[in-house]
Write a protein that binds this DNA or RNA. Sequence first.
DNA 1: CTGTTAGCGCCTTCAC
DNA 2: GTGAAGGCGCTAACAG
Lengths: 331, 331
Amino acid sequence: MSTILDVSKKAGVSKSTVSNVFNKKKYVSDEVREKVLQAAKELNYYPNKLALGLANNKTNMIGLFLENFGEFRNMHHKIIEGIAIKLNEYNYNVILYLDSVDGDVSPGMKLRAEPIDGAIILDPAIEDSRIKELVSSETPIVLVGRAPHDYSNLCSLDVNNVEIAYQATKLLIEHGHRKIVLINSASNLTITADRLKGYVKAHFEAGIEFEPSLVYNCNNTKSKGRELAKRVLESNLATAIITESDVVASGVYEEAKMQGIKIPSDLSVFALGGTDETLTPEVGKVIVDYKKMGEDAVKKIIKIINKEPFESNTELEAYRMVKAKSVARIE
Amino acid sequence: MSTILDVSKKAGVSKSTVSNVFNKKKYVSDEVREKVLQAAKELNYYPNKLALGLANNKTNMIGLFLENFGEFRNMHHKIIEGIAIKLNEYNYNVILYLDSVDGDVSPGMKLRAEPIDGAIILDPAIEDSRIKELVSSETPIVLVGRAPHDYSNLCSLDVNNVEIAYQATKLLIEHGHRKIVLINSASNLTITADRLKGYVKAHFEAGIEFEPSLVYNCNNTKSKGRELAKRVLESNLATAIITESDVVASGVYEEAKMQGIKIPSDLSVFALGGTDETLTPEVGKVIVDYKKMGEDAVKKIIKIINKEPFESNTELEAYRMVKAKSVARIE
DNA sequence: CTGTTAGCGCCTTCAC
DNA sequence: GTGAAGGCGCTAACAG
């Protein structure tokens, strides 16, 4: 690996002149520039990114933080895609971090030492060590999801999950359902609180008493969905189930089939999150454009880094509700 | 951001002692260690990754190189997933690079300046500037796909695409087809050459003359698949089409429907690559376990980096052939 | 076992 | 316009 010194020698100039040629901050005569570029080419020289980062305190790298549960969800894939492609336009790269939400924030704050100019954090948790560490190091941050209360000043970006859960619940209530189970997301996530809020609101408006025992939490896997569905269906206490995603819904479908319960005649199902899961009958769900969310997150983080004005909390309209056959009217 | 110097002062020791506490290469007394750790904690200190990288010539970052066509394919998502999760186990991170295959390898070899310890390259092309640059900088490399001839010494990893194309073609021939169109992948990829080879081999073995005009290339999009299908179907020259993927196959399906051509009675279709695309009737295809490919790529790159022995070219068995209704017997 | 010194590759003053 | 010196944060080699 040739260095700036090699190039300067070969071109017969000083190190700083070579530097100036590459970062264009100072005028260099065409003649000298050509000499330098020629020397650089012959030596296969290109400014070392680590040294640049160290000297400039700028790496053009963005960290994307997502939790590792052994497998990614469709949402993760699409957001990664949106982020990577958009960052590429801005001449940035993305580094994937699979750190856990509840890492111990000690003895050294690991994350603050990472070579990134900014962080995009997925699925923010109510208690989130990643946020804590990154905030403490003053790293620019964009949250994809709602910010936890302690960090409500952070820039965030999300669809309105209160509204989505509200609409879904309302839909079921309008179809005559009174006993609606909610299989919500993991209890430590901000999105979970929002969904519950929408669910409760719809009940309240319809004058139906909120029954906490109808609400469950789930880590968004098919097996867990199935397990919960088993409990719900065996106790025969609901006419409808709202799941956090169609993945979980597929678990519900399986268990219903197992028990000879027909969807939608015996049981209605609605999924708050949609992926590519194909179910029969098609499940009603909300489809979010996660790729666009990723792109928007990038636009924001770049603005923050460049100290341009930006909207602190953006509510995205990037979703649509699919009303399908899985929801039936009951008397 | 506190530095190693701050910690050493606070703990009343020298910089190198602090360094030794953190990288454990030299013995430090428990007493001193505690003092240092305590000081580090109070100062929120953690060794700066950039400085570490510069001093050690080691970053624990792996570059994943994939071309940017505006959207990722299922294969990309799954490989990213496998790589990110596996690298995490080894305490590495992954950086995504969306560089083009045919970047100009001048005037400065950009890629060689990246802060990575190794590179995993997807969809290697026959002429691939990424490989060229990375090889010239002696970066450890694993190719996911077959190595181009110029770089046949590079470590690579793939399913046997010659065999897959051979089997698919043979299947169609055994069903009586003689005019089989191949909508192959992009002409600059090594996989494309392999698929053609398998296709030709099956024809040869069956004593059917190879007809080059039946072979097309495609960038793996539905629209392009449809466009090519249009030409094929209008000229009425084939009884079967092999596509590079089920995404392309879906374009073929659409066009066939448009023209009133029934699958499989009028036209048989087989896809060489499978994703989650759902078609009716289900299309015969080969499904590759890309997540596993990603994981295996990681194991290899780590071995290379650690200078452990490794198998240079691995043929993965991570695929299965799905014979579905889209293939019919003709007289 | 601990501290000092030089250097990783680059950028940034500041004289010339 | 150009060059020399110091520093980004850390590790390595060598004394002590």
